[in-house]
């Protein structure tokens, strides 16, 4: 049985206020120039309920850019303790594309050998999703990736229906918020009908721009290894790594030691890294195994549309469009896929 509740918009501020007193409450905030970021808020007036994908994905809370893995002390040998740093938090208004991104990360970090740093942290985060009633902009491909509608991965899921939110209660953790805050009412059949109407309307708004079935993509990539398109985008790429930083599913990292001034104690940390950097696949002997930018671009696309399909039966592109929005060289994921489809005459 699906449980739906109603939250009046006038009660949103109370909800934020109650929840933000108990733990950190993260929500999208406007940064101007149509840019948004997830930040800690205490009042609903700071929240941008209508927003296009934030600069960084909520990945930053699940896999922080810098995180301590080990604290060491070398005063008497190689002494250490392994730690996880975390924060109890509510992550509010996560769009469906980013919910899909979190699901991808969950799979990667729970694969064996399990990553306890990730797994401990993830369960300290309550996720409240928010439906996109409209397409954010021309860069998103969420309909193609089947992420325009919710596919789970949240505790509560909000849909804005004007005067109120209709809220899908998905987990016990979500239900606890309903019960503790006492701000929610039961949804009636007419509320659920309104939600159905919105979803019906969305079917016309969120369209697959490519005219092919998503399931044809792995096969398309099988044929495209030697495509000229990789050279074309490789020639334009600046290897800045913006696309991997903003990507909700890029999880490559470096591990490094940060020494304290006593030169005896310090931390071993995990830091975001990027396969787009020239040194990423370089070994100490000097050999670099993806020296050409075209090879690195190809690698990134295959890591979204082919390799994870082999390994996890899942695409690692959520269709959020961040990589295209952020690219300084205007390399477009949508255009690249279109060119590959055209080149291979896929129908």
């Amino acid at each position: 049985m699906q449980i739906y509740k109603i939250l009046k918009k006038s009660n949103l501020d109370s909800l934020v206020s109650i929840l933000s007193k108990k733990q950190k409450f993260m929500a999208p905030v406007s940064k101007g120039l149509n840019k948004f970021a997830f930040e800690s808020v205490t009042s609903s007036k700071d929240i941008a309920l209508k927003y296009i994908p934030t600069i960084l994905a909520p990945k930053k809370y699940f896999m922080p850019q810098y995180e301590t893995l080990i604290e060491y002390d070398t005063k008497e040998g190689q002494n250490m303790k392994a730690v996880v740093e975390y924060e109890n938090m509510v992550l509010f208004a996560v769009h469906t594309c980013d919910l899909a991104g979190i699901q991808c990360l969950n799979i990667v970090f729970s694969d064996r050998p399990k990553d306890l740093n990730y797994l401990v942290r993830k369960n300290k985060i309550t996720i409240i999703g928010l439906e996109c009633n409209e397409v954010c902009d021309e860069y998103s491909t969420c309909a193609f990736m089947d992420n325009d509608l919710p596919n789970g991965g949240y505790d509560l899921f909000f849909t804005d229906l004007g005067e109120y939110f209709i809220v899908h209660v998905n987990t016990q953790m979500g239900d606890a918020i309903i019960n503790d805050t006492k701000l929610f009412e039961d949804a009636t059949v007419s509320h659920i009908n309104e939600l159905e109407k919105l979803r019906e309307k969305k079917r016309k708004l969120f369209i697959n721009q490519f005219g092919i079935d998503r399931q044809k993509i792995p096969e398309l990539f099988d044929k495209s290894k030697e495509s000229q398109i990789w050279d074309d985008i490789g020639n334009r790429c600046l290897s800045c790594g913006n696309c991997t930083n903003v990507c909700p599913t890029c999880y490559c990292f470096d591990v490094m030691d940060v020494q304290n001034l006593d030169l005896k104690t310090g931390k071993r940390i995990r830091v975001w890294d990027s396969c787009q950097n020239e040194t990423f696949a370089k070994v100490s002997g000097g050999e670099s195994f993806r020296e050409a930018r075209s090879d690195r671009k190809r690698h990134r696309f295959y890591r979204k549309f082919k390799y994870p399909v082999n390994r996890y039966s899942r695409f690692f592109c959520t269709g959020c469009g961040r990589c295209t929005r952020t690219c300084m060289a205007k390399i477009s994921l949508l255009e690249t896929l279109e060119l590959l489809i055209k080149e291979n005459k896929v129908k």
């Binding site: 694969d111 050998p113 990553d115 999880y251 990292f253 470096d254 591990v255 696949a281 082919k306």
Partner: peptide, 18 residues
């Protein structure tokens, strides 16, 4: 020979295709 940074099949440095 590749740069096997984490040894856990995750960090991505030693990846060749999949």
């Amino acid at each position: 020979e590749r740069h096997m940074k984490c040894g856990l099949g995750r960090c991505g440095h030693c990846q060749i295709e999949d």
